[in-house]
Computed example of a mutant assay.
Amino acid sequence: MSSRAEREARGRRGEWLAAWFLRLKGWRIVGQRVRSPRGEVDLVARRGRVVAFVEVKWRASAADLDQAVDHYRLRRVAAAAEAIAPRYVRAGDVQRIDVLLLAPGRFPRHMANALIL
């Protein structure tokens, strides 16, 4: 089993890769590892009038990705997003919760609107 430090390093690398993937799709990263009293949002991205609060999951195998995100985890991200939204969302913006799933040797899977706010 890997140590907490190794898992933390893999998570940071996954977030870095996810940020670049989103940039290549035309998103601007406006926040990384944004913390609030209600939790943390891995990435905050903007494209036009859409602000996405993005949960990033990195797993050792693609098979493990299917169980990486559940409704409970998405609700935690939504609670954190609600707390930090005033920093990033302007009047008229659309906000949403996205998930980016990453595994070695696999193309990233971007799930837009994983939880509708």
Rank of each mutant, 00 (worst) to 15 (best):
Leu100Pro: 00
Arg13Thr: 11
Arg38Ile: 01
Arg4Ala: 15
Asp42Cys: 11
Ala85Tyr: 07
Leu100Met: 11
Ala103Thr: 10
Asp42Pro: 02
Trp20Val: 01
Met111Arg: 13
Tyr88Ile: 05
Ser3Asn: 07
Gln67Phe: 11
Glu82Asn: 12
Ala19Leu: 05
Val44Arg: 01
Ala80His: 08
Asp93Val: 06
Met111Ile: 14
Ile97Glu: 00
Val56Leu: 09
Pro86Lys: 05
Arg23Asp: 00
Ala18Arg: 03
Ile29Arg: 03
Val30Lys: 03
Arg35Tyr: 12
Leu115Pro: 01
Asp42Ser: 07
Ser36Asn: 05
Asp93Glu: 11
Trp20Pro: 02
Val41Tyr: 00
Leu117Cys: 09
Leu17Ile: 09
Gly31Tyr: 04
Arg23Leu: 10
Phe53Ala: 09
Ile97Ala: 04
Phe107Leu: 14
Arg7Ala: 15
Leu74Ser: 06
Tyr88Leu: 03
Val30Tyr: 04
Val99Ala: 12
Arg75Val: 12
Gly92Cys: 09
Tyr72Gln: 15
Gly26Ala: 07
Phe53Arg: 02
Ala103Leu: 09
Ala60Lys: 13
Arg35Val: 11
Val44Glu: 00
Arg23Lys: 13
Val41Thr: 02
Arg75Cys: 09
Lys25Ala: 15
Arg59Phe: 07
Ala79Leu: 13
Gln95Arg: 15
Ile116Gln: 11
Val56Cys: 02
Val94Thr: 13
Asp98Gly: 07
Ala85Ser: 15
Asp42Gln: 10
Trp16His: 13
Asn113Phe: 03
Arg109Ala: 14
Gly11Tyr: 09
Gly14Glu: 03
Gly48Tyr: 08
Ser36Lys: 06
Glu15Ala: 14
Phe107Cys: 04
Arg76His: 13
Val56Asp: 00
Val77Glu: 01
Val69Ile: 14
Ala79Tyr: 06
Arg59Ser: 07
Leu115Lys: 06
Ala81Asp: 10
Arg10Met: 08
Ala79Val: 04
Val54Gly: 02
Asp66Met: 09
Ala80Asp: 01
Phe53Ser: 08
Ile29Trp: 01
Ala18Asn: 01
Glu55Thr: 05
Val99Glu: 02
Val94Met: 05
Gly14Val: 08
Asp98Lys: 01
Ile97Pro: 01
Ala112Met: 11
Gly26Asp: 10
Leu115Tyr: 11
Asp98Thr: 02
Glu8Met: 12
Ala9Lys: 12
Leu24Gly: 07
Ala85His: 08
Leu115His: 10
Met111Cys: 14
Arg73Thr: 08
Gln32His: 11
Asp66Ala: 15
Val44Gly: 00
Arg10Ile: 06
Glu15Thr: 08
Val50Glu: 14
Arg75Thr: 09
Arg7Ile: 06
Glu15Val: 07
Asp64Glu: 15
Leu24Tyr: 02
Ile84Gly: 01
Lys25Gly: 05
Phe21Leu: 08
Glu55Phe: 03
Val50Gly: 01
Glu6Asp: 14
Ala63Asn: 08
His110Met: 04
Ala80Lys: 05
Ser61Ile: 05
Ala91Phe: 11
Ile84His: 00
Arg12His: 09
Ala114Gln: 07
Val50His: 05
Gly105Arg: 05
Arg90Leu: 15
Asn113Leu: 05
Ala63Phe: 12
Ala60Asp: 15
Arg109Thr: 12
Gly39Tyr: 03
Asn113Pro: 01
Phe21Ile: 00
Phe107Tyr: 09
Trp27Pro: 00
Arg35Cys: 07
Arg87Phe: 05
Leu117Gly: 03
Gln32Asn: 04
Lys25Tyr: 07
Ala52Gln: 02
Arg4Glu: 14
Arg96His: 00
Gly31Glu: 06
Ala114Asn: 03
